Amino acid sequence: MRKRNHYLINQKTVLIASEFDNFGKELSRIIEGKKTFLVNRRPIQIIDETLKYYGSSLAGATQGSKAILGDKYNLPIAVNPRVFNILIPCKTSGKKGNLWLAYSHIIHPEKINTRSTRLHLNFGHSIILNMKRRNVESRQQLGALLHIRMIERTTRGATILYEPNSGFIVIEKSGEYNLDVRKDKAKMEDD
């Protein structure tokens, strides 16, 4: 199978997982829709490059999540909240690498035993995680909360009303940086 050298996360990205080649180099296994392929980048690099493409970074997205959700452990990050692109980290402790799931592609977690959970995902996929179901659900809920709060914050106050001659008039005086602020047009015309 030929490996890709570059990848941008999109609406069909279901998961990004670390996979190691025979020499121990970390690559990324991508599941996108019904396809799967390898990318010659670590998951963290793919996430950071995608965020930079959209004008952010992994550090910025992480700080944003902390500002919105508080200083919690394993916070989700928003690649693009308007199209439900929220990624949830699901790395199992003691394992090398990373596993990131797209919050919008999780259908439901199913308890296998006290330490394992099968996640049913869109496009007919499933993955077994060595995590308790309640831990998986907790991360899924944090992803949902991040999504809701970001949508609320980006849509709040979006209505702008314009009524001509109802506000203040600001005039830059000739040759000065002082501004003259006046309430009515009549006083302005007198000057």
Rank of each mutant, 00 (worst) to 15 (best):
K52R: 15
I128E: 14
S57P: 04
G64V: 00
N74K: 15
N122V: 02
N113A: 05
H108D: 13
Y54H: 14
I107Y: 12
S104R: 14
K96T: 07
L75E: 08
S93D: 14
I128W: 06
L69F: 08
G70N: 06
K66C: 05
I77H: 05
P76G: 00
T62L: 07
I86Y: 07
N74Q: 14
S93I: 10
R118D: 09
V83R: 13
G94F: 05
I107N: 13
K95L: 10
G60S: 10
A61M: 07
L87C: 05
H105I: 03
T114V: 10
K96A: 09
K66A: 05
I128P: 03
I86E: 02
T62F: 02
I112L: 14
M131E: 13
F84Q: 13
N130I: 02
T114K: 12
V79P: 01
P109T: 01
L129H: 04
L58R: 07
K132L: 02
L58W: 07
Y73S: 13
Y103M: 09
L129E: 05
Y53L: 06
P81V: 06
G60C: 01
T117G: 06
L99E: 03
S57D: 04
S93R: 12
R118G: 01
P89M: 04
G60F: 00
S57V: 03
K66T: 12
Q63C: 01
N74F: 12
L69T: 07
K72W: 12
V79T: 01
G70H: 09
I77A: 07
M131C: 04
L69P: 10
I77C: 05
P89K: 01
A59R: 12
A102M: 08
K52T: 12
Y54M: 07
K52G: 05
S56L: 02
H108W: 12
S93N: 13
N74A: 12
K72P: 08
L119K: 03
R133W: 01
K96Y: 09
N74C: 10
I127F: 10
S104E: 11
A61G: 06
S93V: 10
G55C: 09
A102F: 02
V83P: 02
P89T: 02
R118P: 04
Y103C: 10
P89G: 03
S104Q: 12
T50E: 09
K52E: 15
A102C: 11
S93C: 08
N80D: 15
I112H: 04
S116N: 15
P81T: 08
R82W: 14
